[in-house]
Design a protein around this nucleic acid. Structure first.
Lengths: 198, 198
DNA sequence: GATTTACGATACTGGTCGGTTCCGTATCGT
DNA sequence: ACGATACGGAACCGACCAGTATCGTAAATC
């Protein structure tokens, strides 16, 4: 969490008033919310404090800087993406892409993504955080495709990297540029184009 | 151009010292350069003036605000993208995508794109400018695919919209997220996956 | 109850930035 | 030559912002 104070061993029962766990959650949530609305740089710490229903002091008691806070908030937004093995590439991909589509619209990370991409152009910390996120989305996809090759559903010489690009790229493209929907209809048509065994 | 002064009829030979055409060009070029490096919001007018080798007064004599300047600079960066008809969908797409790949790396618009996407989230003027750009890239692509259907190279029930997403999406995806190359090898593999008549 | 720590509110500091103003100089048409 | 306009340089204004400091109060331990 990169919290400021050395929160020592839990058993050691600190003296004094304890930190509010609600405040931690409220600050992280408000950070993602505000950063999604006005951008990472456009977000002022004063506005953030107000949105979180918390004093600015309370924020700086936990994080040393805005940068550290944003980093933590982004990490907290990365939920795991399950990769179920149904025994069929098509069904695996369908399930995976449908969930991806949902998260791309309502996931906590989704609104911040455009801003994160922007800042990552010059900020190495955020750049590596974004790389984590990208691999996070890519790994299950490559696993699914790998199983497809093993089972003979996909040609052995298939370029899995490019195939993953073909399946993931349109999601980013629609989300950032055309704002077209990412619903089941889209997933089915996408699979129809990309996978021959449709 | 949204220039400030009413530059009247050209024949009317204004009195006094004329505006420097070099300055116009230098300012627009420096705007794209700097905006690409530090972002649209991160670009200060003082730095911009220095980069353009021009005084800040000279900028504000031409444009009323930073916003107007950026809008003009973006418009000036949109060069036309030719759509040659070779008689084969595959060859048309190949030529188109290879040029797209080149422009995505070295085109004047390309560095600004991530920043433009970001700002477009809250700025309607830039949002519509970005929409122009998107349609600008999509239109020739759809024309190529349309001819493919006419010639019977593509199935008549092909969803051209999704197919265009499949061909363009990976470019955005690689450019913004994975930073993988957009070279000829990639184009050929992409076409191999997306077009059955490969 | 005394001590220790967290909290909210507010004010403050040092810096940045968009945009304006002023002045002396350069370049045009007449 | 003269008036009109453009130019560079620099100072300037008002707004905003990250981060700090202070103070009175609330909640925990001892």
């Amino acid at each position: 969490m990169t919290l400021v104070g050395h929160n020592g061993p839990v058993s050691a029962a600190r003296r004094g008033r304890p930190r509010s766990a609600d405040a931690d959650e409220a600050i992280l949530a408000a950070t993602l919310e505000l950063a999604g609305e006005v951008g990472i740089n456009g977000m002022s710490m004063d506005d953030l404090a107000e949105r979180a229903g918390v004093s600015k002091t309370t924020i700086y008691r936990r994080w040393t800087s805005k940068e550290q806070l944003v980093l933590d908030a982004l990490r907290s937004a990365m939920g795991p993406l399950d990769d179920v093995d149904t025994g069929s590439v098509h069904d695996d991909l369908r399930a995976y892409l449908i969930e991806l589509g949902e998260r791309m619209w309502q996931g906590r990370m989704s609104d911040v993504l455009p801003h994160l991409i922007e800042v990552a152009c010059h900020d190495d910390s955020l750049r590596s955080r974004l790389d984590d996120y990208v691999q996070f989305r890519r790994a299950p996809m490559l696993a699914i495709l790998g199983r497809g090759v093993e089972r003979g559903e996909l040609a052995a010489d298939t370029d899995l990297d490019v195939l993953a690009d073909v399946l993931l790229g349109p999601f980013i493209y629609r989300r950032l540029l055309t704002h077209a929907p990412l619903d089941e209809t889209f997933v089915d048509r996408l699979l129809g184009v990309a996978i021959r065994s449709a």
